[in-house]
Nucleic acid binder design. Structure first.
Length: 333
DNA sequence: ACCTGTCAAGTCTGG
DNA sequence: CCAGACTTGACAGGT
């Protein structure tokens, strides 16, 4: 099994390369020239995209093929007071440059719209804002010229004291989405509400690939071991929306998220790094029937956590873990 | 240079 | 019905 590692949004190695610089609505309003204020927003966005490209070049240098973009590339992009603003006109080339680099180097990229995107909500205005946010993420990927292999990963959302009804409502709302949004979605189990089994059931009903977060599964489960769900999770990546796009030239490897608890009393919080043992136990279990896997590291130390994990993995070279590059390994079955 | 409160957005809990 | 927690990087405004 070939395993590629990636990280989220920002680097702790590359300095002054934030892809998430922003402007608050308060300071936007303070600027008396609205056109100038909008140009400033566009300058910040261009800087974020430029830093994103710098990070991708850093990734390229270390063979990091898996990366999650910041959702905050364009400040205030979906704010209610700025609906007349189309940032994609001014940022066309900046987005295209990022997408071109991704395609040229065969990278796997994604977004993770944050927890305000809730398709299980009973509130119409929240649903509308969620759809708007998803549209925005699709528009960014389209502006990069990336096909449906580039996904937007979300959670099911709130339970509203009735998970059955909430997940049914999620499914109903999903079915009402534009196919361009649908084909780019993946669903991830969360650490408080919807377990891996419950998330898997929704993925199966909708034909959506499931991203298994093994830390979330550890703190929020139905008594199963994570690998006991894997053969079914694997199927959600095959023969569904992940490959519905005729332009997809190769199957998309399944993806998991990994992180470690910050402390014994803060089990859900993310630690600086990632513990090798639980991850390796999982990888060994699934290696016999999983040809390829992408692993998103969600740790405070970002790419440094990735490099540290690779160092830890290198200690298992006598035990079936073959180091392939700075950010990929082969786990022998 | 460093510190603290705040930020557009949702949900859940507890008062 | 409302305040605070949750969680996170960065702003904004202070020293």
């Amino acid at each position: 099994m070939i395993v590629r590692f990636g990280y989220v949004a920002m680097s702790t190695v590359v300095k002054n390369a934030s892809p998430s610089k922003t402007m608050t609505m308060a300071s936007f309003t303070k600027l008396n020239n609205r056109d100038a204020a909008i140009r400033k927003l566009e300058r910040i966005a261009a800087e974020n995209l430029h830093n994103t490209l710098r990070l991708l070049k850093h990734n390229r240098a270390y063979d990091i093929k898996v990366y999650r973009f910041s959702s905050k590339l364009i400040p205030l992009a979906t704010h209610a007071d700025l609906t007349d603003w189309d940032p994609f006109i001014a940022l066309k080339d900046d987005f295209a440059d990022v997408g071109k680099y991704v395609r040229e180097h065969g990278m796997r990229v994604s977004f993770h719209p944050d927890h305000f995107t809730v398709l299980s909500t009973p509130r119409p205005e929240v649903l509308q804002n969620s759809i708007r946010d998803l549209q925005h993420h699709v528009q960014m990927l389209d502006a990069m010229g990336l096909n449906a292999m580039a996904k937007n990963n979300i959670h099911i959302g709130g339970a509203y004291k009735d998970k059955q009804t909430a997940s049914a409502r999620f499914e109903e709302n999903f079915r009402g989405l534009d196919p361009r949004i649908q084909e780019r979605l993946t669903l991830e189990n969360d650490d408080k509400t919807f377990t891996a089994q419950e998330t898997l059931a929704v993925c199966q009903n909708l034909g959506v690939p499931m991203v298994l977060d093994i830390h979330h599964q550890w703190v929020n489960n139905d008594g199963e071991k994570p690998w006991e769900l894997w053969s079914d999770i694997l199927k959600t990546w095959q023969g569904n929306l992940a490959q519905a796009d005729a332009t997809l030239d190769q199957p998309l490897p399944p993806k998991i998220h990994v992180s470690s608890p910050k402390s014994p009393t803060e089990l859900r919080s993310h630690a600086d790094g990632v513990e090798v043992a639980p991850l390796l136990a999982f990888l060994r279990e699934i290696a016999p029937y999983t040809p390829a896997l992408d692993v998103m590291i969600e740790a405070k130390s970002k790419d440094t956590a990735l490099f540290d994990l690779m160092k830890d993995l290198s200690n298992f070279s006598e035990e079936g873990v073959k180091i392939l590059s700075e950010a990929s390994v082969e786990v022998l079955a």
